[in-house]
Computed example of a mutant assay.
Amino acid sequence: MEYLQELQVPDLFLDMLAEENENFVEFGMGGLCNLSMDPECRDVILQSGGISLVTNCLSNGREETVLSTITTLMNLATPTTRSKISEPGILQCMLRFSLAESPRLRNLAAVFLQDCCSEEQVRQAQQQMQGLQTAIGIPLPKK
């Protein structure tokens, strides 16, 4: 990890999230997903504004990218970041994903809701979405 940080690999992966090439975005998100499990790398990602960059990838059309995004958000959850990671827009996105056809996406979204959010937060997000159980605004990823 020391060498990865010295070579600024987390920053490289974060930069890749803004690329137009979907392969680069998927690779960058996968790399961040792996790095975010390490507390030091997690801190580097957070200090670089990683939550907003990662959250933007929730609307990516590739299922693998979205799965890596959800996992990364779970890895970035700390007592100080939990409020940003469990904001209503993200919760509503996870509720939509929990209705997806893909079992991987559906199950991972359910784990996110269980592990990163309180029951009250989920209940409030569900109430806000009442009658809006579609993926309007956030395209579901293709398989």
Rank of each mutant, 00 (worst) to 15 (best):
V66A: 06
S98K: 00
L91K: 00
I136D: 15
E119W: 01
L76M: 06
L17W: 02
L67H: 04
G137P: 08
Q8D: 14
L108M: 07
L76D: 07
T81P: 06
G49P: 05
L46R: 04
T81R: 01
L108A: 01
F112C: 01
M74P: 02
Q47S: 11
G131V: 03
T78C: 08
L108I: 01
Q5C: 14
V25R: 12
L113D: 02
E20Y: 08
K143D: 15
P88I: 03
P139T: 07
F27N: 14
M129H: 10
Q124M: 12
S86D: 11
E87N: 10
L14N: 08
Q126N: 12
E119I: 00
Q121W: 02
G61M: 10
P79A: 03
I70H: 02
D38C: 10
Q130I: 03
C117K: 00
M129L: 14
Q121A: 09
C93N: 07
C33K: 09
R62T: 07
E40P: 02
R96G: 12
C57A: 12
I136N: 15
M37S: 15
G31D: 10
L105S: 02
N21Q: 11
R42F: 04
G30L: 08
Q47A: 11
Q133H: 14
R82N: 12
Q128H: 08
D38V: 02
M129A: 12
C41R: 07
A110G: 07
S48F: 05
C116L: 05
E119M: 09
M37N: 15
T72H: 06
